[in-house]
């Protein structure tokens, strides 16, 4: 099962990640004309710290708190019956009602689009938001569903053999960084 991955290149460091997040925090405020009715929801696991950081930047800029929620999409995955390893279900924690609100869904990497698809279904089951927007750290292409991101920190063209790895302090410890890895020959 375990595939050997070797690091090919580091594409972002902590500063680049911070600057990028600050930029899209501004974009979110600009596009939504402030923070009224905004909820930031992070997709477990690495979307969660991204949502929290965006909320903090937005608060710095606008001086207003934006609610942050956590979404676990395990129950909505379309590969549940085909996966070998049964995923552990975690809690979904959305502190306020989503009905009529603008949801910013945050995740680390946008790839096939299936995670966002599952997250959209999960959100819909929590209520009827006015709007859902997607914010990601990396968009690496290769979409399998008609889904696009509204806010992207960095577009990274990749091959399917490659894997994007995001290290975020809150989850992985150490310094923030994003790397391109490649599956080793074998």
């Amino acid at each position: 099962m375990a595939t050997n991955l070797v690091e090919k290149a580091q594409i972002m460091d902590a500063d680049a990640i911070r600057r990028g997040l600050v930029r899209i925090a501004h974009e979110i405020i600009e596009r939504n004309k402030g923070t009224e009715g905004l909820i930031l929801i992070g997709i477990r696991r690495r979307g969660v710290p991204l949502a929290q950081r965006l909320a903090a930047f937005i608060e710095e800029i606008e001086g207003r708190k934006v609610p942050v929620g956590v979404l676990d999409i395990t129950l909505y995955r379309d590969d549940l019956t085909t996966r070998t390893e049964q995923p552990v279900v975690h809690r979904t924690e959305v502190p306020v009602t989503v009905a009529g609100k603008t949801i910013i869904l945050a995740d680390d990497v946008l790839y096939t689009g299936r995670t966002i698809r599952a997250a959209l279904d999960a959100l819909m089951d929590l209520g009827r938001p006015a709007q859902i927007q997607v914010a990601v750290l990396i968009d690496r292409g290769h979409r399998e569903l008609p889904i696009r991101a509204d806010y992207v920190v960095k577009n990274v063209p990749t091959s399917k053999r490659e894997v994007i790895e995001c290290h975020l302090t809150e989850i992985d410890g150490g310094e923030d960084r994003v790397m391109i890895m490649e599956k080793a020959e074998g």
């Binding site: 676990d72 395990t74 129950l75 909505y76 549940l80 552990v88 279900v89 975690h90 809690r91 979904t92 924690e93 279904d121 999960a122 089951d125 929590l126 209520g127």
Partner: peptide
């Protein structure tokens, strides 16, 4: 423990207005 942990994660669904997941 796995059952108890999973139940803890799933309990939230029961209090939703739409009590249904497609799993």
């Amino acid at each position: 423990q796995l059952i108890l942990d999973t139940a803890e994660s799933l309990k939230e669904i029961i209090s939703r207005p739409i009590k249904k997941v497609p799993t």
